[in-house]
Design a protein around this nucleic acid. Structure first.
Lengths: 221, 221
DNA sequence: CTGTACCTTACATGATTTGTAAGGTTATTG
DNA sequence: CAATAACCTTACAAATCATGTAAGGTACAG
């Protein structure tokens, strides 16, 4: 069943939304702990996220951006503010649609169905500024080009994407590739990084993987 | 450059839109012959279509539906009517977004950029009823699953998809795989078909490649 | 300049893909 | 129902591709 997660601190509205969506045949979950929204939403792996902007701990805009980086699919921002600036900002940060409260039940459902229809059959993609990665097959998309990475290349790039824009240490990458950091040949990771960069260059992605001397690697952008 | 096609019969508004979009750096074309809108738009192959609902010859809704069937990418409906029913109808017929006139220039541009962003970096996918195929990397998508086919498997499936629902002869497939039909071992194609079917079964696609005895193969669906 | 951290290239091993061969199954026809 | 042709499956070996290792090179900090 299609699962929708609601991020809304107004309990009354939350109940109302859950009711509407339940009646429309969706499986609905609401976030309760507003300190770990991103983590919780990612764990729930919803088909769509209904996101309020006015949230107690963190702004909905920040949440939106983080969720998009984690590859969480369609986000519909729902807010009581009726400011154009908010809408522009929201769309810029990666929201897929934007509705202002109060909003007619049918309009909400139509927009939700519209987003779901467009995402269905589409690959789950983790996006960066210039490219996207299918975390399943390690297929990389850049504009109209696409290329399949090898297992190791894909694992490294995925880790960098998921931790963007943080630095990922060599130790973490070693664990990721071979299950342990106590691997003998320290050079193996280097070689795999070289290979990844070479492959990225094939689709015109130069200087994407940045070296932070003594710390590790991170994605540039 | 990104090309936007405007379908709008109000000349004044048309000019205004062209001006806004040109200044925003888009290549803009406007439809002049309202009797052959669909054909003209398909020929222009735009990156986005701006579509009015109140059109002289045919309703914008019909146009929208036809364009979507032709695979024309994102359609933004722009109309002076402010009726919820119109919006619901438009979204149902496959429109990707909906705005009511009068509309602030920045909101229009934000929505356009949003649609383009979502379509960009998305793989070019050839779709069937149950699955899609990236013709470039031979990555197959079925619901939330994805799998990379081998070169030969991919070539065969792509040919079947492109000729759907026609039959593709063995001779054509031989030419596709080895450049010539006069290949000695007639069995090689068989083996590759068996492999393709086995791979398809891995993602739950049973009986997708149908054998037409004496004629060739075709996609079922 | 020196040392350390990082990068690159080449090569051998192991995994995957692919053509070939051999034999089995299914459908049509007399 | 038997004979035949079209099609399917499995197993194996050669070719291709991915990956760890080794050896040597480059860049940066002190």
């Amino acid at each position: 069943m299609t699962k929708i997660v609601i991020v809304e601190d107004d309990v009354f509205l939350q109940e109302e939304l859950m009711d509407i969506l339940n009646k429309a045949g969706f499986e609905v979950e609401a976030i309760t702990d507003f300190h770990h929204i991103v983590k919780e939403v990612v764990t729930l792996a919803p088909d769509l996220v209904l996101l309020d902007i006015n949230l107690p701990v963190q702004s909905g805009f920040e949440i939106c951006k983080s969720l998009k980086l984690k590859g969480v699919g369609p986000i519909l921002i729902l807010t009581s503010r009726d400011k154009l600036q908010d809408e522009l900002h929201g769309l810029e940060l990666g929201a897929d649609d934007f509705l202002t409260k109060p909003c007619h039940k049918d309009r909400l459902l139509a927009r939700i169905h519209n987003l779901l229809r467009r995402y269905k059959g589409q690959p789950e993609l983790i996006r960066s500024d210039n490219f996207s990665l299918d975390p399943n097959t390690f297929t990389l998309y850049k504009e109209s080009q696409s290329i399949v990475l090898s297992t190791n290349e894909g694992k490294i790039l995925l880790a960098l994407l998921q931790n963007q824009p943080e630095i990922v240490s060599k130790s973490e990458l070693n664990k990721l590739l071979w299950g342990t950091d106590e691997y003998i040949d320290e050079n193996a990771l280097q070689v795999n990084l070289t290979r990844l960069r070479k492959t990225l260059r094939q689709v015109g992605l130069e200087n994407v993987v940045e070296t932070v001397r003594g710390k590790g690697y991170r994605l540039r952008g």
